[in-house]
Structures are given as C-alpha cells and as structure tokens.
C-alpha cells in the first residue's frame, strides 16, 4: 500500500484545445494520495476536460501525466476508475441495472470472457452498497436521475481501483442520493483510496473535501488542504465575481 501524502497524480504543463479554443493552459498540479480531493471552478473552466485529459479521453496537445510519481496511464489504468457525467450516455439503451454494473468487472471477466454467477454476485454486492440491489433487473430507462447516478457509482466501485476520478457525481440528485454517495465515497477514502471529484456546491466543499484544486479558465489558481485554500479571495478569483462568500 502506498503511503499517505505520496503524490497520486502529477500533471505537468498540460495543454488541451477544442478546435481553436484552449481549454487547459499549461496546467500543472500535484494531487496527494489518500485524500478526498475536490476540483472546483466555474462552468467551462476545464474541470471535466482535466479528468478526460488524464484518462486520454480527449487528445492532449502537450504535457505529461504521471501516476504514483512514475507510472504512465497504460501501466496503471486498472488502478483507476473514471466516472463520466450521467448525461453522457443514452439511458434508453437496452440494458438492465445489473448489465451496467457488470461492465465495471471487466478486469475479472476480460473483454471477451463469459459472465459467471460469481460476477453477478459481485455486481449485486456493489449495487447493495448504493442501495440499488432491488433494481438489478430493471431497465435503466426506468430509473430516476439519482438512481442512474448510483448505478454509475456501483459500476465505478466494481472496478476496485485505488484512484477514483468522478465527474460531477452529485449533480442534479436529491439529498438522500447525495448522502448515500458521499457516505460510500468517504468509506472508500477511509480504506486508503483517493477520490478526485468535480464539485459545484460551494456550501458542502469544506464538509466533503480535505484537499482542493481550484481552477479558472483552464489554469490552476491554487491547490492545497481545504482549510488553507478555501478562502473568500480564492473563491472570488475562480468564480470571477466581486461578492464575497460566507465560508462556514
């Protein structure tokens, strides 16, 4: 097991462009292992693109990403679970809840392997964690937004990774679902896993995260432990507004 405070993810001078628009500009950061890490910034600041660039889902024009200080993505891909935004898929797709979670078990089943009863049991175990076991045979189109998010999370849990990259897992869900998700993430974190999560709700930042990466217009404004960097000045800077926030 890697020790706490080792660097789990190191981005060096990342540049990502969508056409002529530069989304990440000379983006560098070191994220420590074993923390709940929040990525915060205004809409369009490059938070999701940063996660996609890490996973090479979008082409990176230049720069480098290292995991655990020396490995590239190919070497540690199986140690990383990525959770895309819920609206990135077609929820009318012909699949049951169980089918979706089974996708996360590719490490065990292989891409061409057969799904066996033990795999289904494991998928059900992760569905139970997010309180969705009773929905296992339901068509995914029958789920509410919060339930869909929980299914996605169960799929990410099924990957049994060391590092979890989550793109807005708490967006557009009710309070109960948020509580279930956060509880599970905090439990994973207490087991030594690193959670890196794009987050939008300012009022819960200090409650959920021990470490923050603050972004504005594709650049890192600051990063550090929440108690040190969560200041009105930094929030004003990343959101580009003049009013001060009240930080509890």
């Amino acid at each position: 097991m890697l020790s706490k405070n080792k660097i789990v993810l190191q981005a060096k001078n990342l540049q990502v462009c969508y056409g002529n628009h530069q989304v990440l500009k000379d983006f560098s950061c070191d994220l420590p292992e074993g923390f709940m890490i929040g990525i915060i910034g205004a809409n369009g600041s490059g938070k999701s693109t940063f996660l996609k660039a890490i996973m090479r889902i979008v082409p990176v024009d230049s720069g480098e990403v290292l995991f655990w200080e020396k490995y590239n993505l190919q070497e540690v891909r199986h140690q990383i679970a990525y959770l895309p935004q819920r609206n990135s898929v077609d929820w009318d797709f012909p699949a049951t809840v169980l089918d979706v979670v089974l996708m996360g078990l590719y490490k065990e089943t292989g891409l061409f392997g057969k799904i066996r009863p033990k795999h289904k049991e494991k998928a059900l175990f992760y569905l139970e964690k997010v309180k969705m076991q009773d929905f296992a045979q339901k068509h995914i189109a029958e789920l509410s937004g919060g339930q869909q998010q929980r299914v996605f999370l169960a799929r990410a849990f099924a990957q049994e990774a060391q590092l979890y990259l989550l793109d807005e897992p708490l967006a557009g869900i009710d309070a109960v679902t948020e509580e279930i998700i956060v509880e599970n993430l905090q439990k994973l974190n207490s087991e030594g896993k690193t959670i890196v999560m794009v987050h939008h709700q300012i009022d819960t930042i200090s409650e959920y995260f021990q470490y923050l990466l603050m972004i504005r217009q594709g650049e890192v404004i600051t990063s550090g432990e929440t108690k040190e960097v969560l200041t009105n000045e930094n929030l004003q800077q990343i959101y580009g507004i003049k009013q001060a926030f009240v930080i509890q």
């Binding site: 996973m55 090479r56 889902i57 990525y82 895309p84 898929v89 797709f93 699949a95 996708m103 799929r155």
Partner: peptide, 8 residues
C-alpha cells in the same frame, strides 16, 4: 452504451 467509459 458508454464510449467514454470504454476509453477509460
């Protein structure tokens, strides 16, 4: 179903 997840 999920091209982004497949890439990841």
């Amino acid at each position: 179903f999920d091209e982004t997840f497949a890439q990841s």
